[in-house]
């Protein structure tokens, strides 16, 4: 009950911003940032530093020393004279990240998407859908080819088609965004406000 009351009070403080900016809103905003940062820090210490570095060291697993030291080198960024040392672990991160990412990402987001355009076609409706999808992808991409476009009638028409498709996409995204935000309000009213009134 006390926790519910605190929740309700904090919600009212946040919602008070809708009227105008005020100290109650500012206090709650800072509280949220502080609690989130504190929680995140503790989780990283518990599940990261202790579980992945200290615990293995305690059990005699020395393989964590080099990655552990590389991780600790990030602390050097705090001091201007030694900040350059933090670039070495960063280089490892960027190198391994790029190596891991490039191949599978291209396959997932480009190759599989392109190959799916020609497969699973199962009737006239599907053929129309694929054609619209193909034209929308092509015309939207064409709109951004500023160096290639020569401002001919065809250029204007095809780039204009791209704009129409993009506007439809933005409209759909806006609709979904409204739904998302209203869902948050519904949850607050349903699970907190209506419990008290």
């Amino acid at each position: 009950m006390i926790l519910d009351l605190i929740t309700l009070a904090l919600i009212i403080c946040i919602f008070s911003f809708l009227f105008k900016d005020n100290p109650f809103f500012k206090f709650t905003e800072r509280l949220l940032v502080g609690v989130s940062a504190g929680y995140g820090f503790l989780i990283i210490i518990r599940d990261g530093f202790l579980a992945k570095f200290v615990d293995p060291l305690r059990t005699g697993d020395l393989s964590v020393i080099i990655p552990g030291l590389l991780g600790l080198m990030f602390v050097f960024t705090l001091f201007r004279r030694t900040a350059f040392l933090a670039k070495y672990p960063l280089a490892f991160l960027l190198g391994t990240g790029a190596g891991m990412e490039i191949g599978p990402r291209i396959e997932t987001s480009i190759i599989k998407q392109i190959s799916a355009m020609g497969s699973h076609v199962s009737g006239p409706v599907e053929i129309i859908n694929r054609t619209v999808l193909f034209i929308s992808a092509l015309s939207s991409l064409y709109y951004f080819l500023f160096a290639v476009r020569k401002n001919t009638k065809f250029d204007r028409f095809f780039a204009g088609t791209g704009i129409v498709f993009m506007m439809i996409a933005f409209g759909a995204t806006f609709g979904y965004t409204v739904m998302s935000r209203i869902s948050l309000l519904i949850d607050i009213i349903d699970s907190v406000v209506l419990r008290f009134f």
Partner: peptide, 26 residues
């Protein structure tokens, strides 16, 4: 996924990479 992200994931659903999708509260 949340409604905001649902639009982005339709491409993966249409390509068959996702077997199904729940978008937002709806």
């Amino acid at each position: 996924t949340t409604a905001i992200m649902a639009g982005e994931y339709y491409t993966y659903l249409n390509s068959g990479q996702l077997l199904g999708m729940l978008g937002g509260l709806r």
